[in-house]
Each structure stands twice: as structure tokens, then as C-alpha cells.
Design a protein around this nucleic acid. Structure first.
Length: 613
DNA sequence: ATACATACC
DNA sequence: AACTGGTATGTAT
């Protein structure tokens, strides 16, 4: 195994950030100007959060300092950077508290607790399942839509803003992703993989987990690494794409292994307790999926860099972290992970968010909401979903993120309903903070109605036991309807089914009464509030007879007509279909310029017409 | 149930 | 000029 253990990090010394004042940012700047090669710790940490994670994915040869400096130069002074520093400060504060607690704990003996935790570890190690051969295949980064390896040498990573990428690598040509091609390739690959494990699980667009234990049993001449090589070879033949792979006794380790021999190699970790222990002992914690930059730094600051050190410190981890994190880290420290591949993925939410140039105008914000609710409704329709929680997400011009969620008692899917709920939330945000300007808005629908299996009643329904009833005549059972939440007394389940189906047919339209039920939001929005634009739209257009799209355009037109002089700003960034206020025809435009040009032409035409008559 | 932070690709 | 978008999950309240 040629695993690079030379993990260098910046957190050797304990970080005391006592002198953090408001103009500290300027100090940072000065320091950087003073000494070109030395940024201070705080900036280091911020940069680390923003930039490259040297642990993951082919970045070992990058001159990190140089890249970080470029990123710093470009983004310093930006609202984004200031916000990142702010968050960094909060995090540092949290770590400081943890350290204090850690030092106190170190003073104590904790012998009993240590023994208990050691016993638990031994038990977990003894019970660990080493019978499965899990393979993780990683095709990521071999396609153009993310940074390829050439580009990565320059420190370009996917999702890096183009302007920074261009600074890092002048010859970089940005190629728009080819989704169709991507899809075809992805299908090819899955076909190959399914012949080795029909129960394989696509973990993302370019990652797959599979269990080859069965295949190995049926084909005793193969070894795990031979099977994996064959799979990679077949993928290459069919798609001309290279893939890296990891073979290990569980998902967590397989994923780490697949990362070790990129972009066209494989790494096997034997199903042997000693091998696993050796491997994990020196493994930097940041390599583990689920440990991100924040957790990594937190642990680093406690002196924990490898999983081996993590294991030694689990007693403190238990005191310092929350139970779920403790449980997770305990498994990590022992190299224990899932051995069963679960490919039954179920969506829990669906959302759309858009970034745009800062907007503080109320009307424009509602316009954005309409755009986004339209897009969300499209996606929701494609997936045939109905949900009862709507979350509005806003990012201020200062990059602060706020989310507000409102759950109603009916399941909705139509654009007008999503907009309606979203608007309630946006109303309250605007009321709370009237002149705030935002750079992003998002909407999410969640708490879905599980209608896929037409509701398997026995699983889904809470049966209410009448424990006190011994009466033989009381055969009726009570069920809680998952739609209306009423308790229904019936003789047979199918009677109840009828009720549920009835309810399902009635969830389509949400009434105003929805909002009366919701105390929190009605405190702020009494019923006699001035009629919203939305309500006017509903009143004036018979929405039940219009399609979503009609509704959208009518709503948009009305909103625009309300504030004709603002129309130029209403389409600041997203491409959208609009009704020209002059000629009344619909036009498609993605920039203000396009729209303005159209309007200019229309205005000119108008003038010419008037002149002629 | 809601708000927010963190993580992953 | 300029630091994404979609989803999940953990934690605090």
C-alpha cells in the first residue's frame, strides 16, 4: 500500500485568538503585505475552509500556499470573505470552549470510564463483520464538468468560480457540462456493474458501491482485486473513461481506498482485523467521509490527526461531542462501517435556489419568489410529490443565511400553493427586516405524502389501542388518518382506506383557513391585513381552470404591471419569459439588457405610431 | 416542529 | 464584478 501518510497540517500549535477585534481584518491585510509568504493563523483557517482540502482527491501536488494566496487576493475584502471570517471566529470560540473542557478532563483519572470504553471497543471489534467484499468505484473528475486532473494540478476544483479558476490556470477552457452524454455513460457503467452485483448502489452521479461477495462465491477463481480490475477494464472499454476503485470490508473503508489510487487505479484492504487496524491507525481523520473541514479542524485542535489518535481519545470525545457524533467517531476510530448496501433511496425534500445580484426591493423579491416557486413546482410535478412543509431560504448581501420553515396541515404541490406558503414566510422576513438586501433565495418542499404505494395502511397508520375495552361488541378499531389526522372508527380496514382516499382527493386545494390554524404566522398576519398581490391574482384569475404555466405568467404580468417602472430590475439574473408592458407580447430574456432592448424598440415603435397618426 | 450548521458531490 | 446548487443529517431550542 503506497498510502501517503505525509499529511501536513497547520494546526500543530494551539491557536489562541485573543486579539480578535473589529479591525482585525485590516491587521490581516497588513500582515500579508508585510510578509508575502506568511498569512496569519486566522486567515489560514478561513482559507482552509474556503479552499482546498488536501485530504481529498488528487490535490497532493498542488502548491497550496500559492493557490490560497490567489484565492485570498481575489476574494479579500469581499462580503463573502468577511462572512467567512465571522463564521471562523464563532467556530474558533467553540473550539476554545472545548479545549478548556478537554484540559479539565485530562486532569482527571477516568480509569473506570476508560475501562468501560475499552470493553465496548473490544466488543465492537469482536462483533465486526469482515465477511463482505465491498467495492467503491469512483469515476468523478474524469469528466469535463468537474475539474480534470490537468486542471487540478493548478489547484482548480469543481464548483470553483470561473474567475478564480482562470486566475489559477490561464489556459483553462470552461466547457459546459454535457448532461445527455453524462447520462448515457452513466447507464453504460451501471449495466456493467449490475452483472457483478444487481443490488449495487449509485452513491452519486459518478460513484457506485457494490458488494462482490456473492460474485466471488459463484466464481471461485476470481480474487476481489481481479474482479475489480475486470470491472474497471470493462468500464474503460465501453466508455473510454478511467475509474478508480477501492475494495474493503465495509463502505467507509472502500470509499477511502478508492481515493488512494486516483485517477486510474485500485486499492484493496484485506478483510482482516489486523490489516484494518494497521490501516486505520495512521489514517488522517479528514479522509473519512462525513468528517469535513470543520470537524477535522476541531479534532486537530484537540491534537487528534489520525484515526489511531482518535481511538486513544475516545473517552474525551464522548464527553466533548454529542452522542450521535461520538457514536460515529467511535466507529470511525475502529474502522467499522456499514457492510450492507442499501440502494433504496427515498427523497426527503426537493428544493430550488438561485443566486442573483443583490435585491432589497420588496416587489422584486416577490418576483423572485414567483420565479423560484415556478421552477420548484415543475420539479415537484416531475417527481409527482406532495409535501406539507415549505422552507424559504435567504442569503443576505453579507452572506448570512437564514431559513424559515412553515408546515401546513395539507399536502401541496401546485405552484400557486407553494408560492402562497412561501409568500407568508417572505412577508414575515421582510417585516422583520424591511430594507435587507438579499443575494439568494431558495424554496424547499418537504414532509412528503407517501403516496407511492398507495399508502400501505398497516405500516403507515397509527393504530390506537383501546386497552380498557373488553367489550366484545366493541369490534371497531380506531385509526388515525395520515392525511387529515382524524381518528376514524371502522369495522374493516377497507372502510378506513376509503376515508383515506377521500382525504387524498381533498388535499389539492389549500384554503385560507390553513393560515388561521397557524398561530405563529397569524400573529403577524391578521386576516384583515391588506390584500396581497397573490390574493388579487387568485381573485381575478380562475386558477383552477388555468395551467401552472398560465398561472405563472398571469401572476408575473400582474406583478409587473403593478410596478411598471421596476420592470427593468425584475429579471436581473434568471432567464424568464415576460410580458412586455408596451407590446403585451411575451418575450424571453436572460439579462436586463435584452429586456431593455426589447422595450426600447417597442417604445420607439410606439412613438413612430403616434407620430404617424 | 423549526432554525441553523455541517457535510458531500 | 464575481465563491454554486441540491440533499441529507445532526444539534439546539
Amino acid at each position: 500500500m503506497n498510502y501517503d501518510m505525509n499529511y501536513d497540517n497547520n494546526y500543530d500549535e494551539i491557536n489562541e485568538c485573543e486579539n480578535e477585534e473589529k479591525d482585525e481584518y485590516n491587521n490581516v491585510k497588513e500582515k500579508i503585505n508585510e510578509n508575502e509568504n506568511k498569512t496569519d493563523k486566522v486567515t489560514d483557517n478561513v482559507l482552509y475552509r474556503l479552499s482546498l482540502n488536501p485530504n481529498k482527491g488528487g490535490l497532493q501536488n498542488v502548491d497550496k500556499d500559492k493557490v490560497n494566496k490567489i484565492i485570498y487576493e481575489v476574494s479579500k475584502g469581499s462580503a463573502f470573505f468577511k462572512n467567512a471570517k465571522e463564521r471562523e471566529k464563532i467556530h474558533t470560540e467553540r473550539i476554545k470552549e472545548m479545549k478548556k473542557k478537554y484540559i479539565e478532563l485530562k486532569k482527571r483519572t477516568l480509569d473506570y470510564e476508560k475501562q468501560k470504553i475499552e470493553n465496548l471497543m473490544k466488543k465492537m471489534e469482536n462483533e465486526r463483520d469482515l465477511s463482505q467484499y465491498i467495492v467503491h468505484i469512483d469515476m468523478s473528475k474524469s469528466m469535463i464538468s468537474t475539474a480534470n486532473y490537468e486542471e487540478r494540478k493548478y489547484g482548480v476544483r469543481s464548483a470553483m468560480p470561473g474567475y478564480i479558476a482562470l486566475k489559477l490556470c490561464k489556459d483553462l477552457i470552461l466547457v459546459p457540462p454535457r448532461h445527455k452524454k453524462y447520462h448515457e455513460v452513466s447507464l453504460e457503467i451501471r449495466k456493467v456493474i449490475s452483472s457483478y452485483d444487481p443490488n449495487y448502489c449509485p452513491a452519486s452521479v459518478d460513484e457506485v458501491f457494490l458488494n462482490i461477495t456473492n460474485f466471488l462465491e459463484k466464481n471461485p477463481l476470481y480474487t476481489p482485486s481481479k474482479v475489480t480490475e475486470e470491472i474497471r477494464q470493462k468500464i474503460f472499454e465501453k466508455t473510454k473513461l478511467t475509474a478508480s476503485a477501492g475494495i474493503a470490508p465495509n463502505l467507509m473503508l472502500a470509499k477511502i481506498c478508492s481515493d488512494m489510487n486516483k485517477p486510474n487505479g485500485q486499492t484493496e484492504l484485506k478483510n482482516d482485523a489486523n490489516e484494518v487496524e494497521k490501516f486505520v491507525k495512521l489514517l488522517p481523520i479528514g479522509k473519512v467521509s462525513g468528517i469535513g473541514k470543520v470537524t477535522e479542524r476541531t479534532l486537530n485542535e484537540l491534537g487528534i490527526k489520525t484515526c489511531g489518535e482518535l481511538k486513544e481519545n475516545m473517552i474525551y470525545i464522548r464527553e466533548l461531542f454529542k452522542p450521535a457524533t461520538y457514536q460515529f467517531l467511535l466507529n470511525v476510530s475502529l474502522g467499522i462501517g456499514k457492510t450492507i448496501i442499501n440502494n433504496k433511496w427515498e427523497r426527503k425534500s426537493i428544493s430550488v435556489e438561485r443566486t442573483f445580484s443583490n435585491i432589497s426591493d420588496e416587489q422584486e423579491l416577490y418576483n423572485k419568489l414567483l420565479d423560484i416557486s415556478f421552477k420548484l413546482a415543475q420539479d415537484v410535478e416531475k417527481e409527482n410529490l406532495k409535501g406539507k412543509s415549505v422552507t424559504l431560504k435567504l442569503k443576505t448581501s453579507g452572506f448570512e443565511i437564514l431559513t424559515r420553515c412553515l408546515t401546513i396541515s395539507k399536502f401541496i404541490h401546485k405552484q400557486e400553493d407553494i408560492y402562497k406558503v412561501g409568500k407568508k414566510i417572505l412577508d414575515s422576513c421582510i417585516e422583520e427586516n424591511p430594507n435587507q438586501s438579499y443575494r439568494l433565495m431558495g424554496l424547499r418542499l418537504s414532509s412528503f405524502l407517501d403516496s407511492k404505494k398507495n399508502i400501505s395502511l398497516d405500516k403507515f397508520v397509527k393504530i390506537i389501542d383501546n386497552k380498557n375495552t373488553v367489550d366484545i361488541l366493541a369490534q371497531k378499531k380506531e385509526y388515525e388518518c395520515p392525511v387529515c389526522y382524524k381518528v376514524i372508527r371502522v369495522d374493516y380496514l377497507n372502510e378506513f382506506e376509503k376515508h383515506v382516499n377521500n382525504c387524498l382527493n381533498n388535499v389539492e386545494d389549500i384554503k385560507q383557513s390553513e393560515f388561521i390554524e397557524n398561530k405563529k404566522y397569524n400573529k403577524k398576519f391578521k386576516l384583515n391585513d391588506k390584500e396581497s398581490d397573490y390574493k388579487q391574482i387568485i381573485k381575478n384569475d380562475k386558477i383552477d381552470n388555468t395551467t401552472s404555466e398560465d398561472y405563472y405568467h398571469k401572476g408575473k404580468q400582474r406583478l409587473n404591471n403593478k410596478s411598471n417602472n421596476q420592470i427593468k430590475h425584475d429579471v436581473s439574473s434568471t432567464s424568464s419569459k415576460l410580458i412586455c408592458p408596451i407590446c403585451k407580447s411575451s418575450i424571453f430574456c436572460s439579462t436586463n439588457e435584452e429586456l431593455n432592448r426589447h422595450i426600447d424598440i417597442c417604445l420607439n415603435n410606439d412613438i413612430i405610431k403616434n407620430y404617424e397618426t
